[in-house]
Design a protein around this nucleic acid. Structure first.
Length: 214
DNA sequence: AGCGTGATCTTT
DNA sequence: AAGATCACGCTG
C-alpha cells in the first residue's frame, strides 16, 4: 500500500520535469561517417564558471578518417599535432589554423585508430547573449554558422584539446531522431584532397548552416 | 576576390 | 633553413 503511493508520486515528478538524457560513451562507438549523421540534431552543451550554460544544436558536420582519406590530418600516421585523433571516441580534438581560428572535432573510432567528426555549424539554443558578446554581433544566424565561428561563440580553444564529452564542462544531450529525409550530403568544404567523398552532412534548409554550399 | 596570421609539415 | 599549405572569416 505504501509503496504504491511512492511510485505514483515519482511518476508524476518525472512527467513534469521531462528529463533530458546525456549521451554516453556507447553513442560515439559508431563508424565515423555514421556518427557524422547521428550527431545532427544533438544538443552540444558547454558550461562556464559563473553558472553560464551555452547550448547549440548541431546542424552541420564532416567526417575525417585516418585511413584512405588524404584530407585527414592523421592519414600519414600519428604526430604531435594529430595524436588526439587516436584517442577514445568522445574526446575533443581542437586545433588552430589560418593563424587565428580554432576548429572543434569529436574523436571517433576505437583507440589507436584515427577518426573524427568536424563540427561545422550549430543553431543557438541557450546562452545567446554570451555568444553575441563573444562574436561581436547580434545576428543569431551569424553566431555559430561556421566551424571557427562556433568555437569563438562557445569560448573553445587549445586548452580544450583532449577534453571529453563525459564531464560537466562538455556533454551532448539526446534529441529526437532526425528523419533521414532531412539529412543532406556534399563534398567537404575548404579541402583540396579527397574531393570525391561526400562526407559533409547537414540538416536540409537549416538557416544556421555555414555559408557557401547547400 | 584578396588577405591576415601562425602552426605544422615537406622539401632542400 | 626555407617554403607551401591550411577542415576560415572578414573586408572590399
Amino acid at each position: 500500500m505504501t509503496s504504491y503511493i511512492i511510485i505514483h508520486t515519482q511518476t508524476i515528478t518525472n512527467f513534469n520535469r521531462l528529463p533530458v538524457e546525456r549521451l554516453g560513451k556507447q553513442f560515439y562507438e559508431l563508424p565515423t561517417l555514421k556518427l557524422a549523421e547521428k550527431l545532427l540534431g544533438k544538443i552540444f552543451v558547454r558550461t562556464l564558471p559563473g553558472n553560464i550554460t551555452l547550448k547549440g544544436k548541431i546542424v552541420e558536420t564532416e567526417a575525417y578518417l585516418g585511413t584512405g582519406d588524404e584530407a585527414c590530418h592523421a592519414w600519414r600516421g600519428k604526430t604531435a599535432r594529430n595524436q588526439i585523433m587516436f584517442q577514445a571516441p568522445g574526446t575533443l580534438y581542437v586545433y588552430f589554423t589560418y593563424g587565428c581560428h580554432y576548429l572543434l572535432n569529436i574523436v571517433s573510432e576505437p583507440e589507436e585508430c584515427a577518426g573524427a567528426v568536424l563540427i561545422r555549424a550549430m543553431e543557438p539554443v541557450a546562452g545567446e547573449q554570451f555568444m553575441q558578446e563573444q562574436r561581436a554581433t547580434g545576428v543569431l544566424t551569424n553566431l555559430m554558422s561556421g566551424p571557427a565561428k562556433l568555437t569563438q561563440a562557445l569560448a573553445i580553444d587549445r586548452r580544450h584539446n583532449g577534453a571529453n564529452l563525459f564531464g560537466e564542462e562538455f556533454y551532448l544531450e539526446e534529441s529526437e531522431e532526425l528523419p533521414q529525409s532531412m539529412i543532406g550530403s556534399s563534398a567537404r568544404v575548404g579541402i583540396s584532397k579527397s574531393r570525391e567523398l561526400q562526407w559533409r552532412k547537414f540538416i536540409l534548409n537549416n538557416p544556421h548552416l555555414s555559408k557557401g554550399k547547400v
